[in-house]
Design a protein around this nucleic acid. Sequence first.
DNA 1: CGTGTAAGGAATTCTGACACG
DNA 2: CGTGTAAGGAATTCTGACACG
Lengths: 110, 110
Amino acid sequence: MALKEESYKDKKVITIGTVSEITGLSERQIRYYEERKLIFPERTQKGTRKYSFNDIEQLMEIVEKMEEGVQTYEIRKEMLRKEKQLNEKTVREQMIRGQLNAQFGIQKPR
Amino acid sequence: MALKEESYKDKKVITIGTVSEITGLSERQIRYYEERKLIFPERTQKGTRKYSFNDIEQLMEIVEKMEEGVQTYEIRKEMLRKEKQLNEKTVREQMIRGQLNAQFGIQKPR
DNA sequence: CGTGTAAGGAATTCTGACACG
DNA sequence: CGTGTAAGGAATTCTGACACG
């Protein structure tokens, strides 16, 4: 798995002006979508927002939904739903892994 | 090839303050290494420097060299040398590809 | 609801220069 | 050579609010 590359995608290093340029959204819009809990930038010590490439992709998706007339609240619900599914999937996988380990896994030496 | 991921690495989106934070270098140092042609940030319309993750990695390497007592001029020479090697390799590969194409490649229909 | 805008302040970035060495 | 710093100006970002609807 390209873990190293992923770290670039998730690192919050981009200022709002640059995000605005890339996405074509106004800073007002970007801050508003944060208010509606659709994106979660980090803050520097002085309070400046920092976004990741992932945030930018998320914003692109939001733009598409908005163009379809979907409201921010609906977009948020959809996000939460998908997150929940992902969590359930992870739990399921870990349970299976746990059972496999119990039967065939490496045991601690006694 | 992970082209999409590479695009994150090469995209110039990070301001000098953030680069300074990540690398531990002062802004003065970062600007100086640019003056010595060791890194090549882009500029916004208003003149603000923008760096990529690649630039940050390059800076990390520069730091190591500097700690070994290597001067910026030497580091630059090394960079140019490596670049030249890469170019020669590419040319060589393309020549081989060209020859293969001439003998076995897809021909334009007559 | 989603977004524009003017307002005032704080933080960021830029350049050219002086300093030390 | 490599880096710190004070200087002055320009551009960025932030928040809370009013506006339209």
